[in-house]
Amino acid sequence: MPDPAFTRDGFAALLAAREPARRPTVTAFAPISGGYSRLTAVAEVAWDDASPERFVLRGDPPPDEGVFVSDRDSEWELLQALSRSRPVPTAAPRWYDGTGEHLGTKCIVAEHFPGRSLQDALRDTDGQQHLSDLYLDVLAGVHRTPLDVLPASMERPPDWDAYVDGVLAGYAEVERELSDSNPVLRYVSARLRADRPPPVPFALVHGDCQPSNVLVTDTGEHVVIDWEFARVGDPREDLGYYTQIPMEPNLYHRDPHAFLAGYRARTGLSEEQVDPRTVEYFLVLGIARLHTQILRALEDVGRGRSRGVMATYLINAVTHLDGMFFRIARGLPSSALTPGVGPS
């Protein structure tokens, strides 16, 4: 028996264990690039009793190579819950190597969806209206997902203010932990603590809800992929997160007011709750988990522990995010200048 590894042999071993009666043969296994967090591959399988099928495998990179950390067990549970209740179409989850005994890493196997990324489709059609509408439908669909269909193990924040405080405290915590100093982050946290937008009900937040994570066919069928950063939170985090996606076309930046009007019409949220200022605010919150993970990876590099080229490459992203955060915080109204603002 081969050593467990994220390879054709590893996948074959998983299938042999899970579907022994169907005599599976892995006929192709190709790693794919593009994702920044997980090992990803597309594989083809021939069965004794059915037509060949294609699958997508998502596994964790070795601990010294990845930058972004997420929990495969939670993602698997969520995928199963979404697959059962279908509030949002997802690629059907099929098997899970939850121990890495076959693939050498925790690995989710889902059915391959025969579409292309909505980002590519938008680019090739110059943001055709029905595709722009589809993206808004996806965002609203994710956020309208009833929380009671989600796994019971998924954390529900106690209340909105505590949730926002917690996310901002995450920035302060990482800044204190690091041997580097980040005065931009300290300034931004202080400003954002003091000037909050109105609350909205908690929702399922995808966490990386960009058109690249929506696959679409020519007939309009679609699935939403890459749920590893999903959580229960403020739905505006997904809106804010999308505004910093650099790939063109970015539907938000093309016409922010029309984009947000479309989102409000689909979700019933008010203009006070969802406007360009609140979206900017939630850019800072929506990317907090990823930003702090990048900073921790850079800290590792600074301490001589390699995290792969991705970590050092993402210094660029930190600079980019710091600049955006600063502009956002600096634009906050003067109500932020109240006594009590300061280190918590």
Binding site: D180, S181, P183, R186, Y187, P339, G340, V341, G342
Partner: peptide, 15 residues
């Protein structure tokens, strides 16, 4: 950098 952070927090608090 830490001194700048502390100074900014102080001026925000003091208005």
């Amino acid at each position: 950098g830490d001194a700048l952070s502390a100074a900014l927090e102080a001026v925000l608090a003091a208005g």
